[in-house]
Amino acid sequence: MRDVRGTEFDDFVRTRSVSLLRVAYLLTGDRHAAEDLLQEVLEQVYVRWRRVRTTPEAYARRALVNRAANRWRRRARRPESALGDLDPATPDATDDVALREAVVGALRAVPPRQRAAVVLRYLEDLSVAETAAALDCSEGAVKSHTARGLAKLREALAGSGLVVTIPNGSGSSR
């Protein structure tokens, strides 16, 4: 039987998987969990391909956010792993590993919706409207989530001493 997804689906996975994996990683704080999450979401996209083929990435992002929030809730009922257990360092530049751990650790302190808003706005560079669609909330809620999440992230990262800090003069209001 012919696969209705053809090569279009494969191309989507090949071209967009790294970008989605980055989002999943920052949402989950764990590479293995992120890969599992990505696979789950892409399987979901596969199943619904006919309906989502015109906007597969937006659908995938939304699914990532929802599933990540569910994972976070499940995990919250278990004892937390030490940060060092989350993503064992690979041979890598020491600064990058330290920065990665600081960012993941900082994001873990940010509530899931705020975390998702910050990741979509600042990693994916989505507009407020696009982020609202991914989070299934109003644009006002996105602005609020982003501002509060960003404040927590900035605070945590500034305290880590791992990144250069400069006076905050810019804003983002797309």
Binding site: D10, V13, R14, S17, V18, L21, R22, Y25, L26, R31, A34, E35, L38, Q39, L42, T90, D92, D96, L99, R100, V103, V104, V118, V119, Y122, L123, D125, L150, L153, R154, L157, A158, V163, V164, T165, I166, P167, N168, G169, S170, G171, S172
Partner: peptide, 26 residues
């Protein structure tokens, strides 16, 4: 002193630069 938006973008990207697509994903 705080991170500006450009810095936030930069650190989020740097924190995920090590990621690559898992083998056999498709």
């Amino acid at each position: 002193m705080t991170l500006n938006d450009t810095d936030v973008r930069a650190v989020l990207h740097r924190a995920t630069d090590h990621l690559s697509s898992p083998d056999g994903l498709v």
